[in-house]
């Protein structure tokens, strides 16, 4: 009855994916990436933002792109991760 979410990462896993990705781009240790901080604070520009969301979609194995505002409008990494997870479960529910 309850649909298994095993294949679909939740907000926490997405947040940790963002941490690792930003750590790599910004060349800092992952544990120094504060999920309460916004993307801007790591010096990411919009091109890097687009590349990040494209990489996230690849990691999630999504056929449909995520709306890019999910990161551009986010107040923090955690906020973007929550929004992404919410959108994914919304999409699942529609199927």
């Amino acid at each position: 009855m309850i649909e298994s979410d095993a294949a679909q990462p939740g907000a926490e896993e997405i947040s940790s994916w963002f941490q690792k990705y930003i750590a790599k781009v910004a060349a800092i240790p992952a544990d120094e990436v504060d999920v309460g901080a916004d993307f801007d604070s790591f010096g990411l520009d919009s091109v890097q933002g687009v590349d990040m969301i494209t990489a996230l979609e690849d990691w999630l194995g999504l056929e449909d792109d995520l709306p890019i505002e999910i990161i551009f409008d986010a107040s923090s990494i955690a906020d973007a991760a929550d929004a992404t997870a919410a959108l994914l479960s919304e999409r699942r529910a529609k199927r």
Binding site: S46, V50, I53, D65, I68, F72
Partner: peptide, 9 residues
């Protein structure tokens, strides 16, 4: 995608 964001915002 950048353009989409620019218009959306």
């Amino acid at each position: 995608r950048l353009s989409a964001a620019g218009f959306a915002m």
